[in-house]
């Protein structure tokens, strides 16, 4: 039977509640190692992308995922083979978590022929059907009905897979999100709506943009159950994700997970971040960093050796360095590519 609808506590003052430190199921040492490695890969990749953007090697918009790594890594740990993933423009982390190669992602950022879209998509538009990653969408909120469409296909085929659609606190105010909520629940589509609440829609804080800042309640009028999750704790994310995916796989319709997370960097690389203080960012990094949490657990609880962690660091760095090298030296697309892939 359905788990009871969890109603997050009402927030009279409209402020974002601090993530609850509830009892989360522990990770084994292997799981913590795996989460550490995956999250670190995203962090180092994004740091390198930021650096390359600063060097003029990456053009246009570049939205970094630094700080939010636990969300996509935890969800991915809960998913099963064949579950489809779709997200918005802050998508590098999702692609890496889906198993797409760092080289191909980075080469797309630099607009080279070895990029996932042959240089024709860029940071916000990459796809891999093989890895069940359906983009990479640049229009805020567009991935929500598209994700519901992926879930529709899952249900139509009866293949038992679930779609996971990620979107931010900003996108959560788009009208098409609620159109999708309605149809997803009406048709019991197997989709987890993951709202990555990183507290700022570009430069506008949740409290300045959202009449209901508890995003887990955004599906209430459609009877879609929702839950607030500590999105900085990969264990909490995986546990909530597993529950939601099971709910969807069981034919109960969609579920909303509000991941309370934080991005350390600006909205995009061109964001001066005047809307928040350095102290706020620093406090988050010091106290809640998703990677540090795992690192501390590995060292203190699992008694991992410093050298083991260093080996992971080195391996991650070498993959990222290799990706960056490739992305700088891979040729640009052939001019004839201008005219391809318009129609099949």
């Amino acid at each position: 039977m359905a788990p009871a609808l969890k109603t997050a506590r009402p927030e009279a003052n409209g402020s974002v509640p601090a993530p609850a430190k509830s009892n989360v199921p522990p990770f084994t040492k292997e799981e913590d190692f795996s989460a550490y490695s995956e999250m670190l890969m995203i962090r180092r990749f994004e740091e390198k992308a930021g650096q390359m953007y600063g060097m003029g090697l990456i053009g246009g918009f570049c939205h970094l995922y630094i700080g939010q790594e636990a969300v996509v890594v935890g969800m991915q740990m809960a998913q099963k083979q064949g579950d489809k993933v779709i997200t918005g423009y802050r998508d590098h982390g999702h692609m890496l978590a889906c198993g797409m190669e760092a080289k191909g992602v980075m080469a797309e950022l630099t607009g080279r022929r070895g990029g996932y879209s042959h240089g024709k998509g860029g940071s916000m538009h990459m796809f891999s059907k093989e890895k069940h990653f359906y983009g990479g969408h640049g229009i805020v909120g567009g991935q929500v009905p598209l994700g519901a469409g992926l879930a529709f296909a899952n249900q139509y085929r009866g293949d038992g897979t679930v779609a996971v659609s990620y979107f931010g606190d900003g996108a959560a105010n788009q009208g098409q999100v609620y159109e999708s909520f309605n149809m997803a629940q009406l048709w019991k589509l197997p989709i987890v709506f993951v709202i990555e609440n990183n507290r700022y829609a570009m430069g506008t804080s949740v409290t300045r943009s959202s009449a209901q800042p508890d995003f887990s309640r955004r599906g209430l009028s459609f009877n879609i159950p929702g839950e607030q999750v500590d999105g900085m704790d990969v264990r909490a994310v995986r546990a909530a994700g597993a529950k939601a995916l099971e709910w969807c796989r069981g034919g109960n319709g969609p579920m909303i997970l509000e991941m309370q997370t934080y991005r350390y960097r600006g909205h995009s690389m061109s964001d001066p971040a005047k809307y928040r203080s350095r102290d706020e960012v620093q406090k988050m990094r010091d106290e809640q960093d998703p990677i540090e949490q795992v690192r501390n657990r590995l060292l203190n609880e699992h008694k991992a050796k410093e050298d083991d962690l260093k080996a992971i660091d080195a391996k991650v760095r070498s993959v990222v360095t290799e990706a960056a090298e490739f992305a700088q030296h891979d040729p640009e697309p052939d001019p004839s590519e201008l005219w391809t892939d318009i129609l099949l």
Partner: peptide, 26 residues
């Protein structure tokens, strides 16, 4: 009813759902 589907009056939403289903191969 599985293949002939009445939608609510939400063009933006169901157009997106249709496109998503097409991306998934339907």
């Amino acid at each position: 009813a599985r293949r002939v589907i009445d939608t609510p009056i939400t063009e933006y939403g169901f157009a997106g759902i249709g496109v998503g289903a097409a991306m998934a191969g339907l």
